[in-house]
Amino acid sequence: MKNKWLGVMLSKEDIVMGKKPLAVLEQIKESLDSLKEKLDVLIDVQKAGCRGTVPSDTPTMDVMTLLNMPDHLRKTAITICRNGRATAEQVAEQTNRARAVESSYLNQLVTMGYVKKQRKGRKAYFYVAME
């Protein structure tokens, strides 16, 4: 008999024996990260005082816009510009900041409309939104 929990098939034996495969824990972590990202976006939207998730007009992330960004976001934004496309982990490696921090900043940039996000399997890729 198998239970489906968080998208992972577990055998009854696994649960009874207390054997939680690493894959399950990883899956839980991924799901929590994903939830956190969604919450961050919702919080940002609330803070910005608008109801829509993403502004309808795609703003451009040109160099003058970068100049006007707060320091912490600019660092993330420039890293995305340099890489073209990257995961939060790849950005974190280059900025020497924590992955979770970069994930939060990247999602703020997504909310602001400067960066687009694409999920591929368990990974989320961020790239500059260009017409």
């Binding site: 451009t60 040109d62 160099v63 003058m64 510009c81 340099r82 073209g84 500059v128 260009m130 017409e131």
Partner: peptide, 16 residues
């Protein structure tokens, strides 16, 4: 416009 300049920045960064 700024959209053009954004692409120009990308093109310059691609030179690396």
């Amino acid at each position: 416009n700024s959209n053009w300049e954004m692409h120009a920045l990308k093109r310059l960064m691609t030179l690396k």
